[in-house]
């Protein structure tokens, strides 16, 4: 085991429940979820913030969990794809199934977390690179705001449709 200064005790809220464990300071939030907590819904596509497959909600905001050190998110609230559904799937999850908004499914948990975080950003009237004037939801806005989640299968039009349905744009 690493010396005490090279490892840390981390407590955080994970999908609504407290978690406490000792981590190698090098461990990313992504690897903590996948390798230590068996929450493998969050995927590792690139490990460098270049694909979005590892997107989770950190204090409600979407971030790339591969670039967050586990030790640095101590005390914060993390929601992963496993924490979105209660008895029923989250409306975004149901919409992704209904619109066939994925093929291989590997980027999908990240897409869904990102879409949920994105709609909150929209509700807060955050602008995007394609916004002109007051922020409102249209396909161009969804495409730009979801550009940080790569889908190599190319399900983008169906992802846009699923998000539009959940946002009430249909």
């Amino acid at each position: 085991m690493a010396g005490p200064e090279l490892a840390s005790t981390v407590r955080l809220m994970l999908n609504g429940a407290p978690v406490e464990l000792v981590v190698d300071n090098r461990t990313t939030l992504l690897d903590l979820l996948r390798d230590r907590l068996d929450l493998t819904g969050t995927k590792k596509g690139c490990d460098h913030g270049q694909c979005g497959a590892c997107t989770v909600l950190l204090d409600g905001r979407r971030v790339n969990s591969c670039l967050q050190l586990a030790v640095a998110v101590a005390g914060r609230e993390v929601t992963t794809v496993e924490g979105l559904a209660d008895d029923e799937p989250h409306p975004m999850q149901a919409a992704f199934v209904a619109h066939d908004a994925f093929q291989c499914g590997y980027c999908t948990p990240g897409q869904i977390c990102s879409a949920i975080g994105m709609l909150d950003e929209l509700a807060a009237s955050w602008p995007s690179a394609v916004s002109t004037g007051p922020v409102r939801l249209d396909d161009a806005e969804i495409r730009e705001r979801m550009a940080g989640n790569i889908c190599r299968c190319g399900a983008y039009p169906h992802i846009v449709a699923a998000i539009r349905e959940v946002a009430g744009g249909d």
Binding site: G52, V63, P127, S131, A147, N149
Partner: peptide
């Protein structure tokens, strides 16, 4: 910073530059 009302009002160039960078997830961090 990109969404801050004073930035958007007074320094559109700054807001535009930020929004042109990276992704939503990266900008949040």
């Amino acid at each position: 910073l990109a969404a801050h009302p004073l930035v958007r009002e007074r320094y559109p160039v700054l807001s535009q530059a930020l929004l042109a960078g990276a992704s939503g997830q990266l900008r949040n961090a």
